[in-house]
């Protein structure tokens, strides 16, 4: 088991990255499905500043997985095939390689020498940058401001994206934070109700 999830292969905007999960054929194992589930927090490596000495914590973007896409070139080739699936793995390995699982990541902040920060990051990740999941402790750190209060600065930016997946994403995040910050449940509940009302009750009404 590893915390590494995959690598950045594309981006749609300054904060919206596409990560390709390590394929089952790579030698290292795929992470547990939980690691790249909807709402999971991840870190994307940032290029090192040339002058910087090798800090113990290299700078990274911190983001959340908000989307998943399966890529399967076979999907449209539904004609008869001479080889069976297992034979195909032997005879045509590149084809297998072309089926992939992609996850979309929204960058919610970053981490540098000054510690974790929420907000729109200044720096961008590069293609092939490594993506790994955050530990619970790291998630907790990311949601604490310098005065040790729970903070959720990125919520407004997320909501502003107008992505239909965002409300569900926020609810997921808030629930996760609720278990990480048991003392701040009341505040989170106000925010959760607010989002839930707008995304669940109002549209149905």
């Amino acid at each position: 088991m590893t915390d590494r999830i995959g690598i950045i292969v594309n981006s749609n905007s300054h904060i919206d990255y596409v990560c390709q999960l390590a394929s089952p054929f790579e030698r290292e194992q795929r992470p547990a499905p939980d690691a790249y589930a909807f709402g999971a927090f991840v870190a994307i490596d940032l290029p090192q500043q040339p002058a910087a000495d090798l800090a113990e914590d290299p700078p990274c973007l911190i983001g959340v997985i908000y989307n998943t896409l399966l890529v399967n070139p076979n999907f449209t080739n539904l004609g008869p095939r001479l080889t069976s699936q297992t034979e195909q793995a032997v005879f045509s390995p590149d084809l297998i390689d072309e089926t992939a699982m992609l996850v979309g990541i929204l960058a919610l902040g970053w981490q540098d020498d000054a510690g974790p920060q929420q907000g729109t990051p200044r720096l961008a990740a590069e293609v092939n940058a490594s993506v790994r999941r955050l530990t619970d402790e790291e998630v907790r750190q990311f949601h604490r401001d310098p005065r040790d209060n729970l903070t959720l600065r990125y919520a407004a930016a997320l909501l502003a994206l107008n992505n239909p997946l965002v409300p569900a994403l926020l609810l997921e995040i808030i629930d996760r934070l609720g278990s990480l910050f048991p003392h701040e449940k009341a505040i989170l509940q106000v925010m959760r109700d607010n989002v839930a009302w707008k995304s669940i009750v109002q549209p149905a009404g």
Binding site: Q118, N149, L150, T151, L152, I187, V190, N194
Partner: peptide
Amino acid sequence: FPDTFMANPAVPPQTVAAMLG
């Protein structure tokens, strides 16, 4: 403050706003 920030009397809307930055 939006009304929904005042959903819980024990949570002042300022703290919700502060949490959101």
